[in-house]
Design a protein around this nucleic acid. Sequence first.
DNA 1: CAATATACTTTGTAACACAAAGTAGGAGGT
DNA 2: ACCTCCTACTTTGTGTTACAAAGTATATTG
Lengths: 102, 102
Amino acid sequence: MQGREIDIHGLDPIIHERVRLAILVLLSETESLDYNSLKKVLKITDGNLVSHLRKLEDNGLISVKKSFVGRRPRTTYSITEEGRQRLSEYLKNLKQLISGVE
Amino acid sequence: MQGREIDIHGLDPIIHERVRLAILVLLSETESLDYNSLKKVLKITDGNLVSHLRKLEDNGLISVKKSFVGRRPRTTYSITEEGRQRLSEYLKNLKQLISGVE
DNA sequence: CAATATACTTTGTAACACAAAGTAGGAGGT
DNA sequence: ACCTCCTACTTTGTGTTACAAAGTATATTG
């Protein structure tokens, strides 16, 4: 217990939020995902999804590309290099925290 | 990506908070911890710590015992059986979410 | 008697998550 | 021409939250 290292401040609050963590994980696994795919997978409301995406974008963790498929708009999200690194750092700290439970 | 199962709602919001998660992990590793040990390990303010402990207690995840050592008060915290189970369930879902990154 | 320790409570603030409803601009159907 | 649907939002609102700072009661130590 005294030898146990606990660093909650290593858990980036921008990343440590359920929806945003899920988005980053999803984006880290694929090249990119569009808005509707994210909405379907995450099962959350539009307002909710958009605000989390905006926060991730504002923090430089994801990038956004707007295009058209036929005449329909498509917004596509990708994780940035910085996002990948910060996610990795977050996961390192998270795993250290939860390692040894059970 | 379409086969990927993502269930953010399986991540209990009571547990999914940095300080509370850390407290539960710490308590799951030892018999019990007193207030001051928690404060030292977590490096947070009193008000902050107390409020998180209260929330965990109110939700039945930890139990609280008050005693005296000499004439000094000592408050001791333990994880409950329910807390252990809910932490375990939370961790199962969390690990599933972050598995496969990198 | 002053300072320190324990374990809080009170007060305040700024941020946050989330839902519900509304919007624009085009597509497709009748 | 009209209506509904789709995408990707924005706006508005509500209730909760995390957190810090400061104060408190009780007791011990210097």
